[in-house]
Design a protein around this nucleic acid. Sequence first.
RNA 1: GGGGGCAUAGCUCAGUUGGUUAGAGCGCACGCUUCACAUGCGUGAGGUCACAGGUUCGAGUCCUGUUGUCCCCACCA
Length: 877
Amino acid sequence: MKEMQTTYDPRAFEDRIYAEWEKKGYFKAKIDPAKVPFTVMMPPPNITGQLHMGHAMDETMQDIVVRFKRMQGYSVLWQPGTDHASIATEHKIVEKLREEGISKEDLGREEFLRRAFDWKEQYGGKIVEQLKKLGSSCDWSRLAFTMDEKCSRAVREAFFRLYEKGLIYRGSRIINWCPDCGTALSDEEVAYSEDAGHFWYFAYPVEGSEEKLVIATTRPETMLGDTAVAVHPGDARYASLVGKNLILPLVGRKIPVVADEYVDPEFGTGAVKITPAHDPNDFEVGLRHNLPMIRVLADDGTVNEEGGKFAGLDRYEARKQIVAEMDSLGLLVKVEAHTHNVGHCHRCNATVEPIVSKQWFVRMAPLAKPAIDAVMKSKTKFTPDRFAKIYYNWLENIRDWCISRQLWWGHRIPVWYCEDCGAEICSREDVAVCPKCGSAHLRQEEDVLDTWFSSALWPFSTLGWPEETPEYSYFYPTDVLVTGYDIIPFWVMRMMFSGIRYTGKVPFRDVLIHGLVRDEQGRKMSKSLGNGIDPLVVIAKYGADSLRLSLVTGVAPGNDTRFTEAKVESARNFINKIWNASRFVLMNAKGVDVPKDLAGIRLTPADRWIISRLMATVREVTLALGKYDLGIAADKLIDFAWDDFCDWYVELSKPALYGNDPERKRATLGVLNYVLENYLKLLHPFAPFVTEEIYGYLPNTEGSIMVADYPRYNSKLAYRQEAKAFEGVIDLIKAVRAMKVEVNCPPAKKVRLFLVTEARRLISVNRGSILRLAGASEIEFVESGAAAGEKTVSKVTEIAHVFVPLGELVDIEKEKERLAKELARVTVEIARAEAKLANEGFVAKAPKKLVDDEKAKKEKYLEMQKKLEEQLRLLSD
RNA sequence: GGGGGCAUAGCUCAGUUGGUUAGAGCGCACGCUUCACAUGCGUGAGGUCACAGGUUCGAGUCCUGUUGUCCCCACCA
């Protein structure tokens, strides 16, 4: 047998093990009618992406669930893939081209796309390699891409179906425009922030009068497109002006004063300039009052020809000059500092401009309704369920979805325009001839679709939909989606309504939502702050298992978590502990024919206790994982290994291992090995590498732990009574240790124990362990503490009254004080129990077990009280 | 304005459907080169569970309100 290295060094085996898993094909999903499928769709990372901590946590959580289910016997598909990330990628490539001194227009659409695909081939796979470092057990043979053939086909089908039903339309509406990216954005792609700005007060002259009306604006440049000024209908200050015209300064246009409820008379001057083409509210006002819409900003953010002498200026330069000019005309009344919410492009952070533009939209109301109902009816469940509320909130307030983007990298909208008859044709296949007039002069829509339009189809497009492929029939709908709460509006919601609409089924039964990984100070990790920590660096230093554990321990579902190196370190320490405990077992197993299972082993109380604890852990961990309580499962796993197994059972096993009874030693090794082997299986989903590595060294294992059966709870091995009794032995050992510490007795000094007890048998059987762990030389059963002599310390435990003669170390006064304190505590407990039992409501209504427990507790404390009093009396005499 | 989170030990956080004496890690104190592990072992100190009411036999947990704090959405031109 090969020997384990003395220290845990993940670098020695993680890559090797991953390669083996892949080679053996353990990640591959198989359609197996004899098994129940379990499907998880990986949220496809952007091809431009670098693995960050958020991914690391998301991936880890999925991998834990997936490995758990696989070991439980499900036929697992964990579908990986990447997202073309239309705007993000195009932005990056354009940037790169700019460095080379070329624009995308120089290249033309075709050449640009060719380069983009090249770029994707070259860099897009990087994140995939990074995911492997984490141990992700997804089926790489099915790696998908949102722009591959399958997905593209699904996109066309989906678009066509919505178009056909009139759920997709083209129209001029106010949309968010990013002048830097040169494209429209959806509402969700705009991020607002409180920016410092100004409030400029402008006076607009009233036609045919000396009077002026003062308005306030944060965007002076938009005044070029003003087509009215609005006041509140009930505002007496302006009542006489309603219906009159103003002369728009700098432009000279006559614009009316209109009355509209939208105006807040308390805010600003109570008069609002109306620019229907550049403000969503003004747009509405414009519709109500039939105002002309004058667009004054071009796509690149400069003033267009409507801006007269300001035409061609950048929006900010125009703003400056307009303010200056208004000032020189004496029409600038005042300027105030003003912070207001400014929309920024999600991708490039440029200030977005609301602009009236002809775009494609998805009608949301008919799609949102079934998506809400599905969650209401629990066809899909959120974990934690509070996220359902957030989901409702989004869908209930949703507006039509702007899906067209003025970009090249993406799915081109499958609509053709006939240049001869003007027909608009939407088609699943490319169209060459106009079906209306037979003309061949067709022009395909230039725009591409929002990236999220294709991501929304991910759960089924990757499986071959609209084709009824075997994969689709077997693996769809998927079981659980794991993602962060920040993605609910972008993705979760859209997959829901898309799945329901196209497949008639919810795309997933569960949605496991997690929070953000923040930095040590609780700040969001971000590029601009430079506070991000690279998971790969952490893996290189501590190993993937440590990183994985650190990301899920002590984390409640849906809550944000802070990443600290200290957490990784303690995870590493834990794994090191497992490593060494395993090494201990294997060292002692050398040359021993270790039993394959527990059959035929004569179990000691300690054996039964640890087996009982193992079973409890199996039950708790399985239950917690079933509810996606990964943090709780991890805690239970760590507690069992460290406290029960290492601190107690390993120590308890030593007398047998080092003793001279070969049969006893063999039996003990059988138990050690049984517990360790099962424990490694329990831990495997969390720490796949180290468990696989150790598993390979165990005497009775073959093959990979990854495909082993997950341990099952066996009530025959629960040994509840015996385990409980054994806790008394542990309690006794702890009591002796504490006594020694209290009197400063050196730990190495062996002491004699005098016990007044009714549990002589239990103690005798565990004599060796008690002596070793309590640091004692002998145990004597006595009828009273007097036998231990005068200079003793004592303690009452569940199973015994322990006396330890410690000679000159004992300070009788201090000992009396200690006993008195203990007595006081016990007395309080008795009073508490009595009060509870005297409460008629409690006795009548509480579950019987609780009442019985309370009675037993009272008896126990009364007994302790008696002993303590006795001892105190003895010392006082 | 709408929605949501959080408030528990010095720090970071758990706490299942309400039910023993509220837990962990780190930190702290004291003591340990105990033959798997100092990435360790033992023993301990440390909490009016933000505040005020309510429901209940019983509240960290459920309800109402208050305060503080954070996030998302909408938004005042």
